[in-house]
């Protein structure tokens, strides 16, 4: 069995290097000594059976769950001890498996709220009044509308996000993450509970984003989706990485096939 680091492409520095991550819940080792490299500019898939610790690992990488032990280096910077909101501001942005829109904010507001660098987004800035921040706001509205247009949701901008369909909520969440200008996007099953038509759409958007140089790590269940979309795939089982490489190379590895791909 090869460690993830040995398979990573040597040419480029990985966007994220997580080493020996442990996450324990009351004696349950959800993530149990996992190391993973996320190569820059690629889509990395994270697969494994239910309860393998994929979502937990994603949460630990994003900082929404603290790691019990281990180190996380993001783009050359050790972020192990920085809280989730700081990691997000640094460009390490996650989405959630369950819909997590801000229901009583409009679609446009869901995007705007994520934008950094708005002078009106501090108490003192807000108290100085509209004229102090309106320029920033206008710029960000334009940016957000461009995203909405690209994701085909312009017509919905003034609707409450809570009234959108499951697939639209996924898109909102991805757009919201993009508003932060991420360098690494952590997607937790972005296709789950989504209409098949929108699954294809999301797939195209993700491919476009990769073409623009964005790095993505995604947890995904659908193996043919992973096969089509992901450049490299990491397989987890019982809190450990049991293999990584391209999907076709993984299919040739006996224990991985036994552990997951067939079962």
């Amino acid at each position: 069995m090869l460690a993830a680091t040995e398979l990573a492409p040597a040419a480029e520095r990985p966007m994220l290097v997580a080493s020996d991550i442990h996450r324990h819940f009351e004696g349950l080792h959800a993530v149990d000594g996992t190391s993973i490299d996320v190569p820059a500019g690629k889509i990395t898939g994270l697969i494994g059976p239910n309860g393998a610790g994929k979502s937990t690992l994603l949460a630990v990488l994003a900082g929404t769950l603290p790691a019990t032990s281990g180190t996380i280096v993001f783009d050359g910077e050790d972020v192990t001890s920085s809280p989730a909101y700081k990691r997000a501001r640094h460009g390490l942005v996650r989405t959630f498996q369950l819909p997590s829109e801000f229901a009583r904010l409009t679609v446009l507001e869901n995007l705007l709220v994520a934008a950094p660098k708005n002078r009106g987004d501090t108490l003192l800035g807000a108290l100085r009044g509209r004229s102090y921040w309106i320029e920033d706001e206008r710029r960000l509205v334009q940016q957000a509308r461009a995203l909405l247009k690209r994701f085909g949701m312009s017509a919905k901008e003034s609707e409450y996000a809570g009234t959108m369909s499951g697939g639209q909520k996924r898109l909102i969440e991805i757009m919201r993450a993009l508003m932060l200008g991420p360098r690494l996007l952590l997607l937790d099953e972005p296709m789950s509970g989504v209409h098949p038509k929108i699954v294809l759409e999301i797939q195209h958007y993700l491919e476009d984003l990769r073409a623009e140089g964005l790095t993505i790590l995604m947890v995904e269940h659908e193996l043919h989706m992973v096969e089509r979309l992901c450049d490299t795939v990491v397989v987890m089982a019982q809190g450990k990485v049991i293999g990584s490489g391209t999907m076709s190379s993984l299919r040739r590895q006996r224990e991985i096939v036994d552990a997951y791909l067939v079962g």
Binding site: A88, R94, T95, F102, D121
Partner: peptide
């Protein structure tokens, strides 16, 4: 203000606001 929007987002879903 945008600050109020952040407050409302936190009210709606704190974990997502953190993210």
């Amino acid at each position: 203000s945008p600050y109020g929007r952040s407050l409302r987002a936190m009210r709606e879903r704190e974990l997502a606001a953190t993210a």
